[in-house]
Design a protein around this nucleic acid. Structure first.
Lengths: 187, 187
DNA sequence: GTCTATATCCAGATAGAC
DNA sequence: GTCTATCTGGATATAGAC
């Protein structure tokens, strides 16, 4: 039962890019790993560069869909914030290659080639949530972008640490991380 | 007065790697930008890979020398911690390409090719400082690695945000960032 | 140590049959 | 849509004169 070939190429590219980097991963290896021909890869993706970018967008959308699926419309703002934080860390731990790929792109020149509007769409939900919390005086009146940056970086830090622990030792660390973060942004 | 050619190659490589990535930067361009021939580049660095790694080590050492120069032996542990945090952010803002390069390597497969002992030497001073603070009951009794991760990620977050601000608007944000961090790791 | 010239290889990308 | 075969450029790295 052959999977969607585009998906197989995505999967193989993800694995190889994370392990060997963009420079160390020829398209021929991606095609081979995916079990398709070189020509097929270029049928789905015009250039290697496009593959890199589309993979990023696909991964980021998957994360956002996951987070959205965990949020209920009638959750309070506090609950929503907490869920976004905690489920981000859990998702990262469950999909380490994907999370690593997001970081890899984020700290690479490729990020500047991804259109502003795409990047904007990806964060707008989160920014709106922070604005809502500020409006309700639930969190300190800090710049929204700053709160977002702090959240993202703290999630990354907690993830990096938790990933070094045995699976059953992670929860207390993550919970502690969240309460530290929460104390940081509330009075 | 021609600079040391190895240094010129480092400077050019840094600039180009940050702007175009490893994949997008041929050695020929680095040599050209540095004003030396392709052959000269390979006289100083056996391979491109070595250049990438040695550049990382050189930049990291520069940061550590800078931080060390700011710490006085008779500073209290609190002062030392604060200085390391604040001067890390200031250094990052003053040397954005270098800081960006550190991140780029950190989230790339190249990091795993840099010897354990080199990486260890780079962080041991900081870990020792955290241990000292724990021993003196100045900060909470959290795992040392966790505190280090949180510090690094928070520094990165504050840097990323501060870098978007006008130079004269940065100080309050950085100070606020530090006090949030401090509150996070103390009772 | 530095350069010019060049070898060698393999990458990304295409053409065209099926 | 998928493959095989292939082109072409340019990349890393070397040889050897100065």
């Amino acid at each position: 039962m052959p999977m969607d070939k585009q998906q197989q190429i995505f999967d193989s590219a993800l694995k190889l890019f994370v392990e060997f980097g963009f420079h160390g991963t020829p398209t021929s290896k991606i095609a081979k790993e995916a079990g398709v021909s070189n020509g097929t890869l270029f049928h789905y993706f015009g250039t290697k560069e496009e593959l890199i970018k589309e993979l990023y967008v696909a991964v980021k959308e998957e994360l956002n869909r996951f987070l959205a699926s965990k949020i209920k419309a009638n959750d309070s703002v506090e609950i929503k914030l907490k869920k976004v934080y905690l489920y981000s860390v859990y998702w990262a731990l469950e999909h380490q290659e994907k999370f690593h790929y997001i970081q890899q792109i984020h700290f690479s020149p490729h990020i500047s080639q991804i259109s502003e509007s795409v990047l904007h769409d990806q964060v707008q939900t989160h920014l709106a949530l922070i604005d809502e919390a500020k409006a309700q005086n639930i969190i300190k009146n800090l710049p929204t972008d700053l709160v977002y940056m702090l959240a993202m970086s703290q999630i990354t830090g907690i993830y990096n640490y938790a990933a070094t622990l045995a699976v059953n030792k992670r929860k207390p660390v993550i919970d502690t991380g969240y309460s530290m973060f929460w104390d940081m942004i509330t009075e």
